[in-house]
């Protein structure tokens, strides 16, 4: 059987909030190393890769590899029933056709269980090569969410230009044009607030704002976000989930005609 128990149940709540608007359904692939999920949005312009390691759970048991196809809106509805401080347990019998979520309140006085039917999804899996990126930008995740929200009012595309001076986010549209420049933080006293840029060579790419705004739904999972860019390959937007894993969003660029 499969059983994964997490005292920090709010992590699962936030993970579903971070993917349910971009993906309608996905398969949770579970083995003894943990839970992986990889899925593209319907337009195949973006891809989500979630990893929750077994050692990040308070109890993790996976007797046989199991792939559970789920409707993410349904899972989000179930997880909305969990309190922020609840312990969340996900469990399923081997080759079961349902999964059960159990929520325990901190004082154990309230225990809820929700059973949901699984779906047969034969979603294609993509091979994502390990890549050395020309530019990586670590910055406060709230800052990135703010930039995406502000610039998407000016146009449906955003240009991200990374040079040794810093990173510039731009958008143009009917009402005009907007540029936001972030310089590398000089004195990194509080890592979480710093903008740290590693640049092997400058990169400028154009992306659709709407996907970036879907990605920033993961902001509550991590105080920092890491953007990785190379010429003419998908942008990677990564949110580390403390002590258990990460959620990575890949976004295909808009290629000049």
């Amino acid at each position: 059987m499969f059983e994964a128990r997490l005292l920090r149940g709010s992590i699962l709540k936030k993970v579903l909030e971070a993917i349910k608007d971009l993906l309608t359904q996905a398969t949770f692939d579970c083995d003894d190393s943990g839970i992986q999920l990889q899925a593209m949005d319907n337009s195949h312009v973006s891809l989500v890769s979630l990893q929750l390691r077994a050692d990040g759970f308070d109890k993790y048991r996976c007797d046989r590899n199991i792939s559970m196809g789920m409707n993410l809106n349904s899972v989000a509805k179930i997880l909305k029933c969990a309190g922020d401080k609840d312990t969340v347990t996900m469990k399923a019998q081997d080759n079961a056709d349902t999964v059960t979520f159990v929520f325990e309140s901190p004082n154990q006085e309230k225990v809820s269980d929700y059973e949901m039917k699984l779906m047969n999804l034969d979603l294609e899996h993509l091979g994502i090569p390990e890549t050395e990126y020309s530019c990586t930008i670590r910055m406060p995740s709230a800052e990135f969410a703010r930039i995406c929200r502000d610039l998407s009012q000016f146009g449906d595309s955003m240009v991200i230009a990374c040079t040794k001076e810093g990173v510039k986010f731009s958008a143009t549209g009917e009402i005009g044009s907007a540029n936001i420049k972030l310089a590398q933080t000089a004195s990194v006293d509080k890592e979480e607030e710093a903008v740290i840029i590693e640049m092997d060579e400058p990169v400028t790419l154009t992306f659709a704002c709407q996907y970036l705004n879907y990605f920033t739904k993961a902001t509550s999972l991590s105080p920092q976000v890491q953007l990785s860019m190379s010429a003419d390959v998908p942008l990677v937007v990564e949110y580390r989930i403390q002590d258990i894993g990460h959620i990575r969003y890949y976004l295909a660029p808009k290629i000049e005609d």
Binding site: V45, L126, I128, T206, A208, P234
Partner: peptide
Amino acid sequence: KGKQATMMNFFKKI
């Protein structure tokens, strides 16, 4: 501005 690429332009199905 620019043609939107998709994941299939970059990653292979496995």
